[in-house]
Design a protein around this nucleic acid. Structure first.
Length: 209
DNA sequence: CGTTCGATGCACT
DNA sequence: GTGCATCGAACGT
């Protein structure tokens, strides 16, 4: 019997077409799923950040629209995936409405399904030690790598197709009981806004241990 | 424990 | 040329 049963409904487009902070809050406890030929991987979202509009100095759209940040201006419920620091893909969910650039960055998951697939995607550490379960999807770069989500998924809607490669999000069985809000991590500007939310007590939450 | 720093590629100025 | 919505190894205390 599988330890981690998924029974959620796929979140519809309307879920994402709301104020970004509401979407961010409601994504905590939801389940991100990727299905491809390698198998199914999924995890409970426990750490998110909101990036809201051109007036948000930390948002990629703060200096207007460019080819790279175009997906932020696109329809809600689609992926905005970008490459940074020369080696990491980061996964966002576009929110609000077409023409208004906003998204939620997914920063950490508690693995539910496919932990062995996730570990093989992460690769082996230099010292050969096994990555702990709660570290496999801890941090936005690690999460994208472990889930097999990358630039090829940029602009794609979070929809479960009947066949083939699909990325989608399901609602969780229960909302997290204790959520905390802090400034966002790793940014230089906009640090006054407490737009990072995380599930208190989860070992998979990113940042300092 | 803590902090620093190199890796690594590219969009944008 | 500069600066990343990062990560983890290396170093200092």
């Amino acid at each position: 019997m599988t330890a981690a049963r998924r029974a959620g409904r796929v979140l519809p487009r309307a879920f994402y077409a709301r104020p970004t902070l509401d979407v961010a809050r409601d994504l905590l406890g939801a389940v991100l799923v990727h299905r491809e030929s390698a198998g199914v991987t999924s995890g409970r979202i426990v750490d998110v950040e909101a990036y809201i509009g051109e007036s948000d100095p930390a948002c990629h759209a703060s200096r207007g629209r460019t080819p790279r940040n175009g997906p932020l201006y696109g329809p809600p419920g689609c992926a905005y995936v970008y490459f940074t620091y020369g080696m990491h893909d980061l996964v966002n969910v576009v929110t609000e409405r077409e023409g208004f650039p906003a998204a939620v960055l997914i920063r950490a998951l508690e693995p539910l399904e496919g932990i062995n697939i996730m570990r093989s995607r992460r690769g082996s550490r230099r010292d050969g030690a096994l990555i702990a379960d709660h570290d496999v999807c801890r941090g936005p770069g690690n999460l994208a790598r472990a889930m097999g989500i990358g630039l090829t998924h940029n602009t794609r809607p979070f929809v479960r197709h009947a066949h083939g490669d699909s990325v989608w999000i399901e609602d969780g069985n229960a909302s997290p009981q204790d959520v905390a809000w802090t400034p966002r991590i790793g940014i230089r500007h906009g640090t006054d806004r407490p737009w990072r939310g995380y599930v208190v007590g989860s070992r998979a939450v990113s940042g300092k241990k």
